Computed example of a mutant assay.
Amino acid sequence: MSRLNGRRTEAREQGLKVNVAILGAGRIAHSMATTLVRMAADPRYADLVAPYAVAARDADRAAEFAAQYGFPVSYGSYEELLADPDVDLVYIATPHSLHAQQGIACLEAGKNILVEKSFTANAAQARELLDVAERTGLLCTEAIWTRYMPSRALIDEVVASGEIGEVRMIAANLCYPVSRKARMTDPALAGGALLDVGVYPLNFIDMVMGGHGATPVERIDTSMVPYETGVDAHNATTLVYADGTMASATSSMLVASDRDGAIWGTDGYVQCRNINNVEAIDVYGPDHVLRRRIEVPEQLTGYEYQVAAAAEAILDGRTECEAMPHADTLRIMELMDGIRAKWGLTYPFE
């Protein structure tokens, strides 16, 4: 058990913070490091979290990373990080295919984990990782930032208010030209558009539908165009829910898109600008006249919300975060498994 799990009062009395370590030193790790440094300087978070350590497979690279962001500790191996008793929370910032193995190693070493999306490469790995989390009693949560952002609650409020009537259709897309990145095209790393960018449209739809599997999916119609390595280059999926709601999700690693999310109701609709980090929420009437624009609060980087949620959960002794409970993570992984099964796409390690 971590030194802080379930010890909020003790931590506050002793001035202890949740020490965050980053496992991996790639692009997303730099984004998290920037976030942690800004959180440490922000009165809202300064007493909650501390940027503490980074681990990479190369000691020089880790040391350079730590020096760049002012982290006090760096390690040239993941094993050294896991042996450090002062690490409270590990942010796993490696390719999807490594998340389960590394997450289990962290939990077995007594470390809470915040696992970058997608949570694992498939649902079987997700179940294995969540089983270890349950056994160890440690926090294990997926770092899909849109689940934790204030924009989620703002969208939920519009839908719940009935302002656009009854929601009957949803559409979401996210496309970036990122095929030049090896992790995106390599089947051995669980590459492809679906797990990296396609997970966002699926989560957007799931959040609008209320999460928690309240309304089950009855039918999936999907297709994809393969990249030369066999993974999906781009894809389109239609989900039909038990209540008749229809939703479409599109993603690609070859092209750029508007990244919009749309929620269509019987008395109007909502347009969300950039589902990967919602910038504004426009509410329209059935006459297509803009009723109002909802601005999204200014943020540090957007990653701070998931870090703060994880830190608060650790101090409260919780094993999951309310914004992204284990059941929701597993359901999305099962959904992506089902989509890939319809394509006939499997990874070499499956």
Rank of each mutant, 00 (worst) to 15 (best):
L189T: 08
F119Y: 15
A83T: 05
I220V: 15
T250H: 10
R127Q: 13
L300G: 11
A21Q: 08
M324N: 14
A56Y: 01
I28Y: 12
N203Y: 07
V115L: 04
K111Q: 10
N19Y: 02
R168C: 07
A242Y: 07
K181F: 15
A280R: 11
V270S: 03
M184Q: 10
A123K: 04
S97E: 12
K117E: 06
M169A: 14
Y148H: 10
Y148L: 01
N235T: 08
H212T: 04
L174A: 13
R8K: 14
Y227T: 01
L36W: 08
A171K: 14
E298H: 12
P150V: 00
A242P: 02
V132C: 09
M1K: 13
A182C: 00
S97M: 07
I220T: 11
R8W: 06
L130N: 12
R331S: 12
P325S: 09
A25W: 02
M149Q: 14
G302D: 10
R38I: 00
G265S: 07
N122H: 12
V283Y: 05
G230W: 00
P286A: 15
T215P: 01
R318E: 15
T319Q: 11
D84A: 08
G338Y: 00
D88S: 09
A133M: 03
A172K: 10
D316Q: 12
E80Q: 15
K181W: 13
T9H: 06
D58M: 03
Y45Q: 01
A53E: 11
A236L: 04
I113V: 15
Y347H: 07
Y241R: 03
M246S: 15
Y69M: 06
H326Q: 12
S179Q: 12
R57P: 04
A40Y: 06
V289F: 00
G210T: 03
Y305T: 07
K17E: 14
L330G: 03
A63N: 11
T215E: 11
R7C: 03
V255C: 05
V20N: 10
A41W: 03
E295R: 12
G268P: 02
V289L: 09
V115Y: 04
L130F: 15
A133Y: 03
G24I: 01
D267S: 14
A341S: 14
L300A: 06
S252F: 02
N276Q: 09
L130T: 07
V255A: 11
S151E: 10
V225K: 13
A33H: 04
A53S: 13
Y227A: 10
I144F: 08
V18E: 13
V159E: 08
D260H: 09
N235A: 10
N122V: 03
D131P: 02
Q14I: 00
E350R: 05
T146H: 08
E128F: 00
K111G: 08
A308H: 10
R168H: 13
S248C: 05
L48I: 04
K181L: 11
I281S: 10
